[in-house]
């Protein structure tokens, strides 16, 4: 059995208490919710926080709802809840598709949306999905709160803008008419991390692309976004040819690294292939 080194453990009841505990324990404290990334790292002794602040009782962070023209997702929402959410699926089918291929039911029952984003694994699926739909993140601290576009949320692998003493509390996704979304992922088997994955959100204006968001994961795309492909598509006909070209552009601009999941040329190819497929399906949905 793999066992972690010594740590203190606190259980918080609300956001105020989380912030107070973060202040008390300082930068070597970590927030734990589902624990499906942090605990394995601790057991492998890749992480050795002084203290864990358990937020599983902070039920105020557990909601999915529409307010005005935004979908709001609390950060303590479990993957399984987002997967099963009719309101999320109604506006953004990408979430259901991404969640369906994240890990396995056990992890999805426990792991949280906020935890996944804060872990900031370069192969994480929701980062690409949230980037595609241009979500923003709400971060609370002792002074109040700030809102950061998802596309500025990640600083690098395993690094985000959430600072010491801060807590990620909410995602906000703008709802606009005339659009839909889709997610495409390839792994070596069910529950595997992505070899590459692409999420697309598209808004149509007649036969043309009015706006588009393309998220990529596991291929070294800056901020999980295929920005050049998005730019190319805006205003173009929403057809196979445009989507194929957008895929080529996405492939060209990502920066995958080789590992046992695959060599660079394969991952680059896959980034393009999956971008094209996701765009095609998102557009099909937007038309109906």
């Amino acid at each position: 059995m793999q066992v972690p080194s010594h740590f203190e453990y606190e259980r918080a009841a609300d956001v105020e208490q989380v912030l107070a505990l973060l202040a008390r324990y300082g930068p070597e404290a970590r927030v734990v919710a589902g624990g499906h990334s942090l605990l394995p790292m601790m057991k492998l002794r890749l992480a050795a926080p002084d203290a864990l602040i358990d937020i599983n009782d902070v039920s105020e962070l557990s909601y999915i709802r529409v307010e005005r023209d935004e979908l709001l997702i609390g950060t303590l929402v479990r993957h399984a809840e987002l997967l099963d959410s009719p309101v999320a699926a109604e506006h953004f089918p990408i979430f259901r598709e991404a969640e369906r291929v994240i890990a396995d039911p056990l992890v999805r029952n426990r792991g949280t949306v906020g935890g996944s984003l804060c872990q900031a694994d370069p192969s994480e699926d929701l980062s690409a999905a949230f980037a595609a739909v241009r979500a923003s993140a709400v971060i609370r601290n002792a002074e109040g709160s700030r809102t950061v576009p998802l596309r500025e949320f990640h600083v690098g692998p395993y690094e985000t803008v959430v600072g010491d003493g801060e807590l990620l509390t909410e995602f906000r996704v703008p709802i606009k008419p005339g659009g839909s979304s889709a997610y495409e992922k390839v792994g070596r088997r069910a529950g595997d991390w992505a070899l590459a994955a692409a999420g697309a959100a598209i808004w149509l204006d007649g036969g043309n692309v009015a706006d588009v968001g393309i998220g990529l994961t596991a291929v070294g795309a800056a901020h999980f976004v295929a920005a050049e492909a998005e730019e190319y598509l805006r205003g173009r006909p929403a057809d196979d040819e445009s989507f194929a070209q957008a895929g080529r552009i996405a492939a060209e601009h990502c920066r995958p690294t080789a590992d046992q999941r695959g060599p660079v040329d394969y991952k680059r190819h896959l980034a393009g292939e999956l971008t094209t497929r996701a765009l095609r399906r998102a557009a099909e949905r937007a038309r109906t």
């Binding site: 070596r188 070899l195 590992d259 695959g262 060599p263």
Partner: peptide, 22 residues
Amino acid sequence: LTPANVWRTIQGSPFRTDLAIT
């Protein structure tokens, strides 16, 4: 026959599966 291995085989450039993929 992982996805990467199959795709590379289709391309005519398979890699050694017992070594690090570069």
